[in-house]
């Protein structure tokens, strides 16, 4: 039972962080399909830095920075040049997929995986990532619901024109939303690769898209999205456990759960799921 719990939490972690990342970006009104690429970039940078410096903590830092960098490209195209947000997100995913394979080849001379690196040492028996993530979930909820920053972020996502009238710099707020999103998903990527002590090709494995599903099911709130991500993670873990007991649920059906639930959610079958009103709509700053 304890192993199942720990296994579930371990699997859920990157989902939870990526889902929170999605909430920050979309609360500010920027759709973030780039989560998949951000996770991957974070995972790669974490392993590279840990490999070169020997310090997994520098790996974590590098993962966060690489996430911010990938999100920065998305923000640059979507906010500065008003490129459609779905398009610029997809472009980032393509770019990072190529880049990660390129560096894998160049640094480790492999098409599949990196060398082994040191993971994080546990804090009193607990995975530091787990502690950080719990703190981040609470902090995200508090930031978005209770702070001036959160209020402004919600304002530019709901009604940017009105927010601007009140003197809020819309594009700057949206940029913050996307960059925080990059930091969180980058951390999620670092968890993914440092937990397995190596980077493997395409290791984000669709988690960025599942995180987007969690954002929708969680109705664009930090706690809701984190809970949905946790649920998806545990569904994946339970399937591994069932298999070890000889009960065979086809893997593919468990894989389909998040997607089928999301379809039901957007179809209004399990309560109406409504995005921020200006989510995905580019905004032109008049003073720009």
């Amino acid at each position: 039972m304890i192993t199942f719990l720990l296994q579930g939490l371990r699997i859920s972690g990157p989902y939870v962080l990526a889902a929170l990342a999605g909430v920050f970006s979309e609360t500010g009104g920027v759709v973030n399909i780039a989560l998949e690429g951000i996770l991957l970039n974070g995972a790669l940078a974490a392993v590279l830095a840990a490999y070169w410096t020997g310090s997994p903590w520098l790996g974590v830092l590098a993962g966060v920075l690489a996430g911010v960098a990938a999100a920065g490209i998305h923000a640059f195209a979507a906010l500065r040049y008003k490129v459609d947000q779905v398009i610029s997100g997809l472009a980032v995913n393509f770019l990072v997929a190529g880049l990660s394979r390129f560096l894998l080849k160049l640094v480790f001379n492999s098409t599949s995986n990196s060398a082994r690196v040191e993971g994080l040492a546990p804090w009193a028996g607990v995975d530091p990532f787990l502690v950080l993530t719990v703190l981040i979930v609470i902090a995200s909820h508090w930031t978005i619901k209770r702070t001036v920053f959160g209020l402004r972020l919600r304002a530019v996502g709901e009604h940017p024109r009105a927010a601007e009238t009140l003197g809020i710099k819309v594009l700057r707020m949206r940029l913050w939303g996307v960059l925080i999103s990059g930091a969180l998903a980058g951390l999620g990527g670092a968890w993914l690769s440092l937990d397995q002590h190596q980077f493997t090709d395409a290791m984000s494995g669709g988690r960025g898209y599942i995180a987007l599903a969690a954002v929708i099911i969680g109705k664009w709130t930090p706690l809701g999205a984190a809970a949905a991500a946790l649920f998806f993670g545990f569904a994946e873990a339970s399937q591994i456990i069932l298999q070890t007991y000889g009960l065979r649920v086809p893997t593919q059906f468990v894989q389909m759960i998040p997607y089928a639930l999301t379809l039901a959610a957007v179809a209004g079958l399990i309560g109406r799921s409504r995005p921020p009103a200006a989510d995905g709509i580019p905004y032109s700053d008049e003073q720009d």
Partner: peptide, 11 residues
């Protein structure tokens, strides 16, 4: 390198 270029071209 050419996979990176495909992503770059889009952007």
């Amino acid at each position: 390198l050419f996979e990176i270029l495909q992503g770059l071209v889009i952007l």
